[in-house]
Design a protein around this nucleic acid. Structure first.
Lengths: 205, 205
DNA sequence: GTCTATAACGAGATAGAC
DNA sequence: GTCTATCTCGTTATAGAC
C-alpha cells in the first residue's frame, strides 16, 4: 500500500529554519512569515523585530519588499529543486518517489506553514510581476519533475493512470497544494495525510 | 464518462455580481475583491471607489473590516448552501451531483476569482477569530454534503471508493480548492477542468 | 445614509551619522 | 552593516455637519 511506503520514507527537508545551523537570516525569518501569514500579511517591521535589528537594516540587504519576495521564491525553488534531485538519487521506485514528494509537502505543513508558492498563488494578483513569474516557474518545475516520474513509472509498470502524464501531474500538484491549504484551518496534518495518501494510491499500478 | 456529464450540467451560480440584477452592493464589491486579492489585499477605499461613495459610508454599514469579512463569509456560505440544495433538488444521480459540485467551483474560477473560503484559508492565521470560525463552518458544511452524496452513491452502486466517506470527501474538497488555487497563476481554467475531471472520475463506479 | 474632515497608526522607504 | 530620524503614503476608524 502506497500510504505505508509514504509514511516510511525518510525526511528530505524543504524547510530550513536557519541557513546551516547558525543564526536565522532575513530570508529565513521572512520565509516563515510569508508561509504562515502571506506576502501581504507581514512587514519589514516583523522581520526586523524577530532579528532584533531595525527596518533600515533590512532595507540595506533588500532594497524593497519586491526584491525580498523575489529572493524568497528563488531560494525556495532552489531548495525544492535540490530536494527533488535528492529524491532521484536516493530512490529508484517511482511510487516511492511520489510518496517522498508528498512527504516534502507534509514536512512544511507540520511546521504550520503553507507551501510558499501555494500561499503566493492565492495572492498572485497583488504580487509584483517578477514575483508572479517566479511563482509560475516553481509550478512549471514541479510539473516537469512529476511528469518524468509518472512517465518512468508507467513505462516500468509500477504506476498506472489514464491520459497524458501532464494531466496526472496537474492533479497531483493541485491535490497536494489544496490539501495543505484546507488542512491548516480544517483538519490539520491528519487531513493532509489522508488526502495525499488517497490521491497517490490512485496512481499505483 | 464523468467528465462529459460534468461539462453538460447546467450552471448553478455561486457568484452574484449584483444582488438581484440591481446595483452592486458593498458585499458584492467586497466579495470579488477578497476573492481576487485576498482579505489583506483590499481596503475600504477600494470598495468605496468602486461604488462612488466615501469610506465613511462603508463604515456606516459595516463598522469594521472584521464585520464586513464576517458578513461576507456568511452570505457566501448561505449562497453555497442554497446551490447545494438546488443540486439535490435538480439531480438524482450522485455522480452528476459531484459533477455539478465541481461546476460550482468552475463557475467561480472563470470569473477570475478564487473560492472565497479557499482564499481565506490561505490568510487564516491573520483573520479575526469570528472569521476563522466562519471559514471552518464553510468547510464543515461542504464536507457534510459531500459525505451524504458519497454515501448515497456507494449504496446505490453508482460511486465506488475505498474507506470512509469522510476521507473521500476530504480529497474532493482539497483537490478542487487546490486546482482553483494553482489554476489562476498556472494553467488557467483548462487546468482546473482537467484536474477536476480526473479527480471525480476516480470515484465513478 | 452620505458627506467632509481628521485623527491615529503602521507600512515602505530614504538620508546620513556611526 | 547597523543605527536614529524622518518622510510619505495608505489604511482603519471616528466626529459631526448636511
Amino acid at each position: 500500500m502506497l500510504l505505508d511506503i509514504y509514511l516510511l520514507v525518510g525526511k528530505i527537508q524543504v524547510v530550513a529554519t536557519t541557513a546551516e545551523g547558525g543564526a536565522p537570516s532575513i530570508l529565513d525569518v521572512a520565509e516563515v512569515l510569508v508561509q504562515r501569514r502571506g506576502f501581504n500579511g507581514f512587514s519589514y517591521a516583523d522581520v526586523a523585530a524577530e532579528l532584533h535589528v531595525t527596518k533600515a537594516s533590512i532595507h540595506y540587504h533588500f532594497a524593497g519588499k519586491a526584491d525580498l519576495g523575489e529572493a524568497l521564491i528563488t531560494r525556495y525553488g532552489d531548495r525544492f529543486g535540490a530536494a527533488l534531485a535528492a529524491i532521484d538519487v536516493r530512490l529508484d521506485d517511482d511510487r516511492e518517489k511520489l510518496a517522498a514528494y508528498a512527504e516534502l509537502y507534509a514536512g512544511v505543513l507540520v511546521d504550520d506553514r503553507m507551501c510558499l508558492c501555494g500561499m503566493l498563488a492565492a495572492e498572485y494578483e497583488t504580487l509584483p510581476e517578477a514575483m508572479q513569474r517566479a511563482v509560475e516557474r516553481f509550478f512549471a518545475d514541479n510539473q516537469r519533475w512529476l511528469e518524468a516520474v509518472l512517465s518512468s513509472g508507467r513505462a516500468r509498470g509500477t504506476l498506472a493512470f489514464d491520459g497524458p502524464e501532464a494531466d496526472a501531474a496537474q492533479l497531483i500538484v493541485s491535490g497536494l497544494e489544496g490539501a495543505m491549504l484546507v488542512a491548516r484551518p480544517f483538519g490539520g496534518v491528519e487531513r493532509f495525510r489522508v488526502a495525499a495518501g488517497r490521491l497517490l494510491a490512485a496512481f499505483s499500478a
